[in-house]
Nucleic acid binder design. Structure first.
Lengths: 106, 106
DNA sequence: CTCCTTGTTGGTAATTATGCCAACAAACCA
DNA sequence: TGGTTTGTTGGCATAATTACCAACAAGGAG
């Protein structure tokens, strides 16, 4: 009935890949279609190596993939259902507002 | 169109709360209904303080809540849509299998 | 009241995550 | 061929996470 610890570990690796504001924004952007590294890079005030490593985390978890086109690296979202993922997060946030819970605002 | 960094931070805190195998299993268990601390504790070979702290993380993110009944602490899942959350994670795993991607198995 | 059960909090050590700089590799340009 | 653009990798310092033990607080039970 309950999932095994091994199964939970596999799942948590995927969830962990999403558990960073920068990577969330990257996924949000890729929800609108393919984008090049430089387009993604321009979104943030971060070193290019940092951006590259965040993209690698998403790629290794299987959420996005990349291909080289000319001198550009193009990234795309592999799993469209990531939208459902977010809709539940939004539900949690709304639930927190109803509870007037402030723990996320500290 | 794209979410702000502040919004992404709020979201990532909730996702981060789910990003641990132990906490995932706790949520799986609470999907079946309310459970006491000792019932949850018995699932794991962990110190009670560790279990308590994991539950606190879930509680502070607004995913679960607790109430004291007699000498027991009862925990419950506040956000049923967490199931949708998992269904997307499962889709990622299945997509990875199709790709024969091994990065999650190392 | 005293002991015992139940769970939380404080402290600490080990591991992991994050972000920068520097160096490198690959493709494009001149 | 030499220089430039584009992105990745290695190394390192700092911060965050995790899990343990010990101590503590709050309720029963005797």
């Amino acid at each position: 009935m309950l999932i095994s610890f091994e199964e939970a570990e596999i799942r948590s690796k995927i969830i962990k890949a999403m558990a960073h504001p920068v990577r969330l924004m990257m996924v949000e952007m890729l929800k609108t279609g393919e984008h090049s590294f430089s387009q993604i890079f321009d979104l943030f005030k971060l070193d290019k190596s940092t951006v590259s490593k965040h993209l690698l985390v998403l790629k290794e978890s299987g959420i996005i993939s990349s291909r080289k086109t000319g001198s550009d690296m193009i990234y795309r979202l592999d799993v469209p259902c990531i939208t459902d993922f977010f809709s539940c997060v939004t539900a949690v946030i709304e639930s927190n507002v109803k509870k007037q819970q402030v723990c996320l605002c500290r």
